[in-house]
Design a protein around this nucleic acid. Structure first.
Lengths: 265, 265
DNA sequence: AACTAACATTGGTCAGACAAATAGGCAATA
DNA sequence: TATTGCCTATTTGTCTGACCAATGTTAGTT
């Protein structure tokens, strides 16, 4: 009969991977506290009965996830890291950017997701925004009014404006969810914006949003955000259609590289 | 004069890290296509003028991010990975779980974020849901009605129900944003739910949501979701207050471990 | 007391070797 | 013919042992 043997369950993964999983689990389950020091690499090698090179490969995996940091010297070693907000935001944004560059998301879908999340933020923000945040928004608006500002600088300021808007909602979890979606747009926006963006319109909508937050007027804030997103969507569509021919030329080398590549996996 | 020397720009980071960044950049910028094969470790070592061990540590960093996969043998090598949706969801959920376990997020904040995002999904879902998705929701509801289902199974089904709900919105970007926030709750919910969860109430609200999606009634769907979240919040609060004494006892060993740990960094 | 130099500890890198997996070719066998 | 066993080349996985580099400690010197 065919069910007589359990074909699965073989441990085929490398030692380094297994070890990194074990340490990772220890961190996630709290058996290793933040800022606690791991045993030295030598001792880990002894305890796991593998060589130090294998331990180091395992530790590199964790370091890549910012779960540990390492220092040399007598007081050195490998320490459990407390990931900072900024690092996590960067990780998230990088993942999201990768997804966009692989073509997993449509720009219009991202815009829709942004609209929904930022609308929620607007509703919460009118209650919770601080004066300092209002000033931060104002600073970005001022920066965006500067006609000598380069396009990349304008886009960066745009992203910062919306990041502050999300922060006004005073909900780290929502901030976390929004970070990927907002930052993922930046490179795409940068590619499009150089020709199509109407700065005055954008600044005007930013100004409307800021004023609505100041007056704690949720309706006005949402309306302004909707207008902003509507304009953004229109610009995307214009850019997409007008880039049709250029995009085909640009993507040709990639296709060639793809067929040349060894794809034996 | 003081500007004669450029004091910055010293490379203090390890070779492995620098190399992994270079390869990572090549992937993100499209110079390495998905499924394309990297040079062999030996050749990379030659080209970068480092040892193979260093190359391997660099590759491990990328492997930890699921950017590459490796296979042995003549047709083997290191290949650029196309991250699957499922892997990314797992990565996101793991990051979110870490944040929760580090106490970065309050459960009530997560609930608020979930409510906002899932409300948006409900509004979109009533227009876009498919019959297959309705059936998937129905299946989870049936599973949740089974009184013999263990608590962990009930929670898992609950998470799946809401995941399908998010999928109904037919927006991958929104799905991406929601994944972390929803899955981050699972372990916390598991810890709380064993005593406090009223299954019938949960199932009833799930049923209301499903029916509202079936009838494409956005108002009803949102109302049911709000009720679900309200109940969840109440349960959190009950659990938090009633766990006051027990939590103190549970956290004692951790505090001891913390003071015992070498925190020389 | 303050500075200096040697020392010990620990991660970072290197070199070379062998083990293990895997594809392809080749021959023996039913 | 089709299957099986075996050999070989290639590439990643792991091991060993060594030395380099950073850094806190400590003893010695001024």
């Amino acid at each position: 009969m065919s069910g007589a043997i359990d074909y699965r369950g073989l441990v085929t993964e490398g030692l380094a991977k297994q070890i990194s999983e074990k340490i990772r689990a220890a961190i996630l389950e709290g058996r290793l506290q933040v800022h606690e020091r791991l045993p030295t690499e030598e001792e880990l090698a002894t305890r796991f009965e593998v060589s130090r090179a294998t331990i180091r490969e395992a530790l590199k995996r964790l370091a890549a996830q910012n779960l540990i940091r390492s220092r040399r010297g007598p007081a050195g070693g490998n320490f459990v890291n407390r990931p900072s907000r900024e690092e996590l935001r960067a990780t998230l944004a990088s993942t999201a950017t990768l997804l966009v560059s692989l073509g997993e998301f449509d720009l219009l879908q991202i815009a829709e997701a942004r609209e929904e999340i930022e609308l929620a933020c607007c509703r919460l923000a009118v209650e919770r925004r601080t004066d300092a945040q209002l000033e931060a928004l104002e600073r970005e608006i001022d920066a965006q009014r500067d006609a000598t500002l380069a396009d990349t600088g304008f886009c960066a300021s745009d992203v910062r404006f919306h990041r502050v808007l999300v922060e006004c909602a005073a909900n780290p979890a929502l901030e976390f969810a929004a970070a990927g979606v907002i930052e993922a747009l930046q490179p795409a926006v940068n590619m499009i914006v150089f020709r199509f963006r109407d700065r005055r319109q954008v600044v005007g909508q930013h100004e409307r949003i800021r004023r609505a937050l100041e007056n704690r007027d949720a309706e006005a804030a949402c309306a302004a955000l909707r207008a902003y997103m509507q304009a953004l969507r229109t610009q995307y569509r214009e850019a997409q259609t007008s880039r049709g021919a250029g995009a085909a030329r640009q993507s040709a080398p990639r296709a060639a590289a793809k067929s040349r590549a060894h794809r034996r996996a």
